[in-house]
């Protein structure tokens, strides 16, 4: 899946991933555009912090185990009888609520949904660029360790 592809955002699961990783400002701006005074949005689940247990796997035995909990904030809304759900990292109530509004607006094909998809795709492109940059920085520290010959 192309992380920066706007068309993938039609898919509910892909959109869920993009919203979770998006910048707070992107989601707040998007939600503000949706809440234009004419669109009726009902909060199904108020944004609230929750825990997700992160699991890891021992690479030799394949044994899964619980590594520790991750703080997330979830929210659910309904817009024109279409539900929207978002889960964002950390304690971030406004971001989660805005994310749920954006999710519902895209699902309901709200008039600004195209702009929302474009904004989410831009965010994803920026993330990919930052990741590429960070990987290049790490790669620039790749080293060959030479075993030193015995001087005798």
């Amino acid at each position: 899946m192309n992380d920066t592809d706007e068309t993938t955002l039609e898919d509910r699961t892909a959109r869920f991933e993009r919203i979770a990783a998006s910048e707070t400002a992107t989601l707040l701006d998007g939600a503000e555009a949706v809440l234009d005074g004419e669109t009726d949005v009902r909060v199904v689940q108020s944004p609230s912090p929750k825990l997700v247990m992160q699991r890891a796997t021992d690479p030799v035995s394949g044994q899964p185990f619980n590594l520790g909990e991750v703080l997330v904030t979830t929210s659910e809304v309904e817009l024109s009888d279409v539900k929207g759900f978002a889960m964002v990292p950390g304690k971030a109530e406004r971001k989660a609520l805005a994310g749920a509004v954006v999710d519902a607006a895209v699902a309901a094909d709200h008039p600004v949904s195209r702009d929302l998809r474009a904004a989410l795709a831009d965010d994803a492109a920026n993330r990919a660029e930052r990741r590429q940059r960070a990987w290049a920085e790490s790669r620039a520290t790749t080293v060959d360790f030479d075993v030193m010959e015995d001087p005798a």
């Binding site: 912090p49 929750k50 997700v52 992160q54 899964p64």
Partner: peptide
């Protein structure tokens, strides 16, 4: 806080290494 759920256990290969 409420436990929302348990994540899937990713394989070690899934680590995004720095």
């Amino acid at each position: 806080l409420e436990l929302w759920g348990y994540a899937e256990a990713p394989s070690t290969d899934a680590l995004d290494v720095e």
